[in-house]
Each structure stands twice: as C-alpha cells, then as structure tokens.
Simulated scan of single mutants.
Amino acid sequence: MADINVTPLVDVMLVLLIIFMVTAPLLTAGVPVNLPDSRAKALDQEKQPIELSIDDQGRLFIDKDEVSEADLPAKLDAIANKAAGQDQPPQIYLRADRGQNYGRVANVMGELSRAGLTRIALVTNAGEGGGANAR
C-alpha cells in the first residue's frame, strides 16, 4: 500500500507559520527613536500610513529617507498633492524621540497642517504591554 504520510508536512508548515508570525513584527522597524510611554489604545488602520520621524539628534525622516528642514515643506506638499484625489488625506504617524523639545514637534505638526495633512497620529510605546502604538 503506497500512502503519503502528511503529518511531517503539516508539522513543518506549522513551524514555518510560527516563525513568520514571530519575525513579521520585527521587520517594521524604521528609524530608531526613543518613544514616550502611553496607556492609550492603538488605532485601527486600513492603509499603510506615512511615518514622519524625528530622532534624538533632531534629524527628520519621511519613512526611512532623511529629509532636511528646508526640504520638508516641499516633500509634504508632494505627499498632499499625490493624495488630492482621495476622499481624505493619508494617515501620518509622527514618531518623535522623547528627548526632543515640544517646540520642535509642534513646528513639524504645523508644517503637516499647512500642507493639508491633518490625520496625524503620535506614536508612543505602550505602557504595560510594550511595543509601539499609534495614538
């Protein structure tokens, strides 16, 4: 009798599934930023957001690309113009290092608002559970 034993195949597939489930959250890391803690719940997200990061040295990043202070308004205008045909502006995740002063973060938020990008979420570390969440 020639039967195929599928039990080892199922075992291997389950191990691979677990490996992918564990490593997938690690692949989303971008610019290293020391985020503040918060107890707020995470936002539900249907589209991939745009990440705007301010690191501990004050450098600006859009997703993983560094942007100078002078080029920021033009880059934000380009993002807003790209999304002009949509019913709402894209979601912006603002990640600022906890060492940055409030004025620096407020200036960046002002530039976002000026460009018409008003769906801004501040990213913080979860208080008890760990991991980064958008608020």
Rank of each mutant, 00 (worst) to 15 (best):
G85P: 00
N101E: 09
I79H: 07
E51P: 08
D63R: 03
S113G: 08
D97V: 08
D63Q: 07
I92A: 00
A74Q: 08
A84Y: 09
L76E: 01
G85D: 01
D65C: 12
V67P: 07
S68P: 04
Q86Y: 09
Q91C: 01
N125Y: 05
G127H: 13
I62Q: 07
Q91R: 00
D77E: 15
L76V: 03
R104T: 14
G85M: 02
A115Q: 00
G110D: 12
R104W: 14
G129H: 12
T124L: 01
L72R: 05
D87S: 09
V67S: 07
T118E: 07
I120F: 06
A126P: 04
A84S: 09
A83F: 13
Q88D: 06
S53L: 00
G129M: 11
D97S: 04
P90M: 03
I92H: 02
D65I: 14
Y102D: 10
T118Y: 05
L117Y: 06
R119M: 03
A106I: 13
D87P: 09
I54T: 03
Q86P: 06
R119A: 08
G116P: 07
G99K: 12
V67L: 06
A106D: 15
I54F: 06
D65E: 10
P89M: 04
I92P: 00
G127Q: 11
A84E: 12
A84I: 10
G129F: 13
L112K: 00
A70P: 03
I79S: 06
P89N: 01
D97I: 08
G99A: 15
D71C: 05
Q88H: 07
L117R: 04
R119N: 08
N125T: 13
L52I: 09
S53T: 00
G127L: 15
F61D: 04
R59S: 13
A83H: 13
L122C: 04
N107G: 10
Y93W: 07
G116T: 03
E111L: 10
G110Q: 12
A80F: 09
Q86H: 09
L60M: 06
Q86F: 11
E111F: 15
A96K: 01
R114F: 09
A84W: 09
K75I: 05
D87L: 09
L112M: 01
E51H: 07
R119G: 00
I79R: 05
D97Q: 04
N107A: 14
P90E: 02
A126S: 08
V67D: 04
L122P: 06
D87M: 08
R95I: 10
L60V: 02
M109W: 12
